[in-house]
């Protein structure tokens, strides 16, 4: 038996023949669909205002905010010219990017504090409604994937 090649499974580093591999084999389609979702939010055909390298930089930044440096490095590899933005201390070079990064950080790390004013700030910085939805989907997916990986690592490390 071999598990599909997905980011979540690779990051959790699940050994062939392990009990955890057998457990995951009951949910393979979920891991395959999770990988399809990564393609859709990180490398979509229709990018809107956010090219693939910028999306990868944002994903790396969110991973860093979550303290997952291995996942940060994986996404950083695709960040190209946008790599500087993956550093959570970087606040963006222009007004639009500053608004985008402030929004992404808050959605990732202080979700409950997000309010309508945060969406209005993006609109005022010139971000279109469709591109606001794209940012939220990217952030939301990466936040999900990070927790799946964190959970798998805990299952592995805490085995009786």
């Amino acid at each position: 038996m071999s598990l599909p090649d997905t980011t979540a499974i690779a990051q959790a580093d699940i050994a062939t023949g392990s009990d955890l591999e057998r457990t995951l084999s009951g949910r393979l389609e979920i891991f395959e669909m999770t990988q399809a979702a990564e393609e859709a939010v990180l490398r979509p055909g229709e990018v809107g205002a956010w090219p693939h390298d910028l999306r990868a930089a944002c994903a790396a930044r969110i991973a860093a905010l979550n303290g997952d440096m291995a996942l940060r490095d994986r996404y950083l590899a695709g960040a190209g010219a946008a790599a500087d933005l993956a550093d959570p201390s970087s606040d963006g070079s222009d007004r639009e990017m500053q608004a985008v990064l402030a929004f992404m950080d808050k959605v990732a790390a202080d979700t409950r504090a997000v309010e309508k004013a945060d969406i209005d700030a993006l609109k005022e910085a010139g971000v279109a409604d469709a591109d606001i939805v794209r940012l939220a989907e990217l952030n939301a997916f990466v936040s999900y994937q990070i927790r799946v990986i964190a959970g798998l690592r805990l299952m592995k490390r805490s085995r009786p």
């Binding site: 990732a108 409950r112 945060d118 952030n139 939301a140 994937q145 799946v148």
Partner: peptide, 12 residues
């Protein structure tokens, strides 16, 4: 984890 995703759409 899925609701880490859904909440960031619905609440945001």
């Amino acid at each position: 984890a899925l609701f880490g995703w859904a909440n960031r759409l619905m609440h945001v």
